[in-house]
Design a binder for these strands. Sequence first.
RNA 1: GCCCCCGUAGCUCAGGGGAUAGAGCGCUACCCUCCGGAGGUAGAAGCGCAGGUUCGAAUCCUGCCGGGGGCACCA
Length: 542
Amino acid sequence: MLRSAVERAVESGAFSADPPAELVVERPKNRAHGDYASNIAMRLAKAAGRPPREIAETIAKLLLDVEGIAAVDVAGPGFLNITLDSASLGGLARVIVEQGAEYGRSTTLAGEKVNLEFVSANPTGPVHIGGVRWAAVGDSLARVLQASGAEVSREYYFNDHGAQVDRFARSLLAAALGEDVPEDGYAGSYIGEIAGRIVAERPEAVSLPREEAQELFRQVGVELMFAEIKQSLHDFGVDFDVYFHENSLHSSGAVQRAVARLRDQGRIYEADGAIWLRTTDFGDDKDRVVIKRDGDAAYIAGDLAYYLDKRERGFNRVIIMLGADHHGYVGRLMAMCACFGDTPGVNLQILIGQMVNLVKDGKPIRMGKRAGNVITLEDLVDAVGVDAARYQLARSSADSTLDIDLDLLTRATNENPVHYVQYAHARTVNVVKNAAAVGIELDVFEPNLLTHETETALLTALGEFPRVVAQAAELREPHRVARYLEALAGEFHRWYDSCRVLPNGDEPITDVNRTRLWLDVATRTVLANGLSMLGVSAPDRK
RNA sequence: GCCCCCGUAGCUCAGGGGAUAGAGCGCUACCCUCCGGAGGUAGAAGCGCAGGUUCGAAUCCUGCCGGGGGCACCA
């Protein structure tokens, strides 16, 4: 509508300028600036050779003719502030109630087949706090992508191949035999616990020759660890569609096929007895060894094969979430993608998440799997519960390192904003219950009765939800949903405080009460939809 | 040395060029004849520093300072 107004203004000869391809219409932060605002007049001012306010006045007059617009003001340096009439804004409440769980979903990513890999913690120990962050963020991202119409496969790459697993096996065996933790081995109570379970299951293990015993401990230990990781993630509300075992790539010949494919692309060469991938063709610092001189596959070989496998399964977008301690991989993985003939950043996208620091008394606690002082997923959930943990981890950008104070978490869980949001939801539910008790139902709906400033603010916030979800999906930033919910909860609490759904005392029930119930249910709907995208429950009572 | 992320209120963090920079927690003062006060209202308090681009910069660019994380024929 803005575009047509601008075009009509140009046609009428008021000024001459080519309107930009994208006209920016935004929701102003300050409600005094209307329901919508545009900077178009300032953008056009230079080309038109006219003052921005003059251009704004011309467009404003034309916009006033559009149905549903109550007022258009020109403000500041030339902003257009557009205010909708109350009925057209209020009508949203009914739309939301009728759409229910569908409200907020869209088709902006329809046709996208997304392979989202996250967590992928090594099977040498429980999932620690860093992995928990990716579990919370990754699962939310998957939900947000799905809400935007994308087809998503959640994947966990299980590194059950290579030297770290050998170290794990040696550590288990040593524990079972009552020996000290081996050099480069893993400490931590879970090692003894798992060793004990292996011995209980396979008592003969300890009396086997060393090599055979270690192999048995490797196999059974990895299996047990895998089951435990899977279970704790499940208890956290995160289930993967595919748990991909690195070993399978080596045993199935997938690595060789990937190397052959890259050879066809002319990116493979041999030197010093090893087989190399020429990643420097695409900006990597140096070429990478794929098959080592001793004939074993280097780590990246698994990545090559796994990437190819994903593409062959039909995913046009492969997204991998990595911790900051692996960011050095981005260059070579992107180059690998290009070596296959794909487009880095399009077919392959790598999200780097920064670290989580545990803080106690203002000082960081150093953690290490080797040192054995890890805070695990289960520790965190035991301390604060799934909802608080997921919300806390998903509400901030993965780009920023996160400080979590253990004392605060264990002591005062009320400080978690999830309670603010969940309490708002519980209130909406309570209002419905109380309304039903006095006979108020969702029958009469008169949107022009929603005129209080808190109602306008609440409706405006509710209207933003679909855009927030789409943006979160597009930018791969699910924390935007959480921040939005906090703002929405605030608008709701303010409305609740000044506009009652139920009549006071023995006052009669009016259409205002009935119409407000729609707004209450609309808010409940959006809070519930939003919380579900974060994998957080929307309880009826808090 | 090179690469990535960060530096916003006392604390933990939002703010994808736009108007008076926000929230939660903490602090001060208020609000229960009123749908659960785990709420609301008011207040104190902030963009690391210096340049640049722009009509306009917390946001984009450069440099510096500070913090974190990386730079294997390890996985």
